[in-house]
Nucleic acid binder design. Sequence first.
DNA 1: CGGAATCCTCGTGGATACTG
DNA 2: CAGTATCCACGAGGATTCCG
Lengths: 128, 128
Amino acid sequence: MATHDADPTRVLKGRDDTTCRVREVLDRVGSKWSLTVIHELGPGTRRFTEIKDAVPGISQRMLTETLRLLERDGLISRTVHPVVPPRVDYELTPLGRTLLDTVRTLLDWALTHIDDIDKARDAYDTRT
Amino acid sequence: MATHDADPTRVLKGRDDTTCRVREVLDRVGSKWSLTVIHELGPGTRRFTEIKDAVPGISQRMLTETLRLLERDGLISRTVHPVVPPRVDYELTPLGRTLLDTVRTLLDWALTHIDDIDKARDAYDTRT
DNA sequence: CGGAATCCTCGTGGATACTG
DNA sequence: CAGTATCCACGAGGATTCCG
């Protein structure tokens, strides 16, 4: 297994370890804040507070945890500068950058079809 | 606003309604079971119990709710056959089918980089 | 078969206070 | 500034039961 599968239509079909790992990765990537944080680091390096301010609604705790998980997965890097006051920089790794492209595909889909979804919801809500 | 944005790198930057809507769509699409269910309907129409059996770990309640939300968003259609015993068929709408392509991009990414992530995790866990 | 309703648990995550 | 630690509320969601 391991590398690239020619038929992505089957990756969720089985119940083996690979399947579970893919689900695991999707859970990480699809979690509430990960996509937003990754996207926020797209343009370049940013500090903790900068990210916090840029992501409305995220708490200190959640940002810390999200950054840690993404760092553990090798998607972002964390650089601590031994100065006072402390300064910590976060940036996408090359691996994280490949995900950024995929994320943009998703964002693009959302933007493109958001109106269709709105109409579908209105129709559903009125006929019930 | 509304239709297609030429620069997807900015869609999450602002704090206006459009931004929130995109986040909302991503929350829906990225929720725990949605991607799996959509993927499961990729090959064609399926019944409630078929989907339940095909998605390991999902509960009756969660499958019902996931299907309802996806139906409300216009991504899947629900067809009740007035027979006994009851029979309900679910299938992707044309809109849902466009998302399927995007989902496959994500799955493809996960499959391609799952090994890199594993290595990154091991490295992180050992150096801490 | 395909749900809806009820109950109850358990983890997520916010608020707050403290620290190097 | 960039966290960590503690407490606690709330809601997601599992298990179970009942129904058309």
